[in-house]
Amino acid sequence: MSNKEHDVTRRQFLNYTLMGVGGFMAAGMLAPMVRFAIDPLLREEKGGKMVDVMAVKDITTEPVRKTFSVDRVDGWHKFKEEKIAYIFKDDNGKIIALSPVCTHLGCTVAWNDDPAHPNQFHCPCHGGRYTKTGINVPGTPPPEPLHVYETKVKNGRLYLGEEKPRGGA
């Protein structure tokens, strides 16, 4: 015991070992449980399957409301989720499928049902409006454009996937 400052006493040594063993036990017990609990955070997102919605030749420049259902798996619960899309061709002939979920607070918007603002999407909850291509009209509540579905054309049929935010635009 020449250097009192640096020598670890027997008691301190025991205390450290005790903390080590206690920590090991707590970790051994809790690690599997915590990993179990946070499983939803670490799950890899599975890309949704594309769903056949309508024939491409039926798509016009006027938005039409189409409902389709997507298979969803929620843990042990499997169900079909009903989704709505407004489908039309834009001026360049590109097919656009808009999700009618208002980006303000999640109400469902409708096409052309407000006589004061023809040819716009209109949200009944807080009066949000979007142009035909889904761009939010400045001065109304929505902060961003309507989300668009991923589209794919195969054998003359239109397939829709997940809805994605458009960002900016």
Binding site: G75, W76, H77
Partner: peptide, 27 residues
């Protein structure tokens, strides 16, 4: 956190937590 005490879901939730959730078998 996963188990549901209901006859329609109890077994499915146990099966799910044991086989599909990470470390479910251990917990």
């Amino acid at each position: 956190m996963y188990y549901v005490p209901d006859i329609n879901n109890a077994w499915d939730s146990v099966y799910y937590l044991q086989n599909d959730v990470a470390y479910g078998q251990i917990v």
